[in-house]
Computed example of a mutant assay.
Amino acid sequence: MSTRELNFAYKVRHALNENLDKLPASTTEKLASARKLALSRRKKESRLRVFAARHAVAGEAGSFFNEPFSWLARMGLLVPLIVLIVGLTSIYQFEQQRRIDDTAETDAAVLADELPLSAYLDHGFNAYLASRDE
């Protein structure tokens, strides 16, 4: 039962309890019979019991010896996460360095060439530089 349904049921119960004295006898009888019917249809409690073996060392409840592979399970989750973080960081650093190297190469080529000032104002030259960056 969801929280919303449970809140609705509490509100209905509260409203019925407030006006219980004002209800006619026939309505009260109908509600009592509906309650009996609902209780008869309720799931019965299971009498089956399950035996679960538990290994324990005397005097050491909750110690490392009760769960010998729990640290392996934690490492099984932690190691891939660390590898993922290191891998993504390495890829980011590599791409940043590549972008810096490309920009430095373009800047060095522009500074080494003897171009007239009008070349820097040309839209074609800007398009050429943009195409080299890609």
Rank of each mutant, 00 (worst) to 15 (best):
I100W: 15
R4D: 12
P116T: 08
F69G: 08
L78D: 02
L78V: 04
V110Y: 06
P116E: 12
L81N: 04
L16V: 08
P80I: 07
L72R: 07
K22Y: 01
R41A: 05
L20M: 02
Y120W: 13
V57H: 06
N126T: 14
A38K: 03
K11E: 04
A61D: 13
R98A: 13
S90A: 07
Q96M: 10
Q97S: 14
F94W: 07
A25W: 11
E29H: 06
H123V: 11
S63V: 02
P116R: 10
L129W: 03
A108N: 09
F51E: 05
A53Q: 11
K22S: 04
I100N: 14
V86F: 14
F64W: 02
R13K: 07
S26K: 07
L37K: 11
R132S: 13
E29F: 00
M75L: 14
S33Q: 11
G62E: 00
A53M: 03
L39V: 15
Y120A: 09
L115I: 05
R42L: 06
D102E: 13
Y128D: 08
F94N: 10
K44C: 00
A9R: 09
S46N: 03
A25R: 12
E29D: 05
L72E: 01
R4T: 12
S118C: 02
A56Q: 05
A127N: 11
P68K: 05
D107H: 14
R99L: 14
A119N: 12
V110F: 02
D107R: 15
L48F: 13
R47I: 08
A32L: 03
A104Y: 13
K30A: 05
N17E: 13
K22G: 00
A38H: 02
T103S: 12
E134A: 08
R49H: 06
Y92F: 09
D122C: 05
E95A: 14
L48A: 03
R74V: 00
E29C: 01
F65Q: 06
D107W: 08
A58I: 10
K44G: 03
K43L: 09
H55Y: 13
E29P: 00
Q93W: 04
L88S: 14
L48S: 06
G59E: 13
E60S: 00
